[in-house]
């Protein structure tokens, strides 16, 4: 109970911080504009002539590459800059409670930005007769991808005081997750790497797990993938925070 209350206190505080600065609103507006731009301009939403959000979700793993590290880079860097990390870690709260609390706050924030794309749903319902299940799993997949990127950004934010370094490191790591299973990359690897290695690298990829949710399939293996990456990244965050304090 104590743990849940502590996590909730951190989450609430962190969410409050997001919305007390204009950055949050700017972030949401940029997210909505870019997702609209990709869907209608690049994704040819109308030309597809089908009542589905496939062209909308398609771009999310790419869009998040920039937006999520930008949202996550401040998580620990700010805490260090203001010196409040010294307050936080001398209060009766464990390191993992603060990590989870911060992660949840940022994830809820991203979820909120995602929820604000609801006019897309109204549009496809208006235009045709979409598959409700696919829309739901599409949102779920998008939200989980954001969660994975966020956990990674949380980790890189704990590594460095410098927000730019944190942003770039997170971006590169997330890009790896996207590209690892991407055809051009695997094709290139196949030419010189052993098949097991290609398979191992491809197994890290987030895209196959994203695609299957887009098709409306909820597979426990996909969920396991998302949650293990999140748990791993958050766990590593804890290790980093502990070791950085020790020195």
């Amino acid at each position: 109970m104590r743990a849940v209350r502590n996590i909730w206190a951190v989450t609430k505080r962190e969410l409050g911080s997001y919305f007390s600065s204009p950055v949050a609103y700017v972030f949401i507006i940029i997210f909505l504009m870019l997702s609209g731009f990709f869907t209608f301009m690049v994704g040819n939403f109308f030309a597809r002539n089908e009542a589905s959000l496939a062209s909308f979700f398609l771009w999310h793993p790419w869009l998040y590459l920039f937006l999520v590290p930008a949202a996550g880079m401040r998580l620990w860097a700010e805490e260090r800059r203001a010196g409040t990390i010294e307050l936080l870690f001398t209060m009766p709260i464990t390191v993992w409670q603060t990590i989870v609390g911060k992660f949840l706050a940022a994830w809820v924030f991203l979820g909120l930005a995602l929820a604000l794309t609801f006019p897309m749903v109204i549009t496809v319902i208006y235009l045709g007769d979409p598959d409700g299940g696919a829309i739901f799993t599409g949102y779920l997949g998008s939200f989980l991808v954001a969660g994975v990127y966020l956990a990674i950004s949380n980790m890189t934010s704990a590594m460095t005081r410098n927000q730019v370094v944190s942003f770039i490191t997170a971006l590169v790591l997330c890009l790896f997750l996207v590209l690892a299973g991407w055809r051009p990359v695997t094709d290139m690897l196949v030419n010189w790497a052993p098949a097991q290695l290609v398979a191992a690298v491809a197994a890290f990829s987030i895209i196959p797990h994203f695609d299957s949710l887009q098709r409306g399939v909820i597979d426990s293996r996909d969920l396991t993938y998302y949650f293990s990456v999140i748990v791993f990244a958050l766990f590593t965050t804890g290790v980093i925070l502990r070791s950085r304090r020790a020195s």
Binding site: S17, S20, A82, G83, T84, E86, L87, T90
Partner: peptide, 9 residues
């Protein structure tokens, strides 16, 4: 703590 840190926002 030294310098009285607090959440600025």
């Amino acid at each position: 703590p030294e310098n009285a840190p607090a959440y600025p926002e």
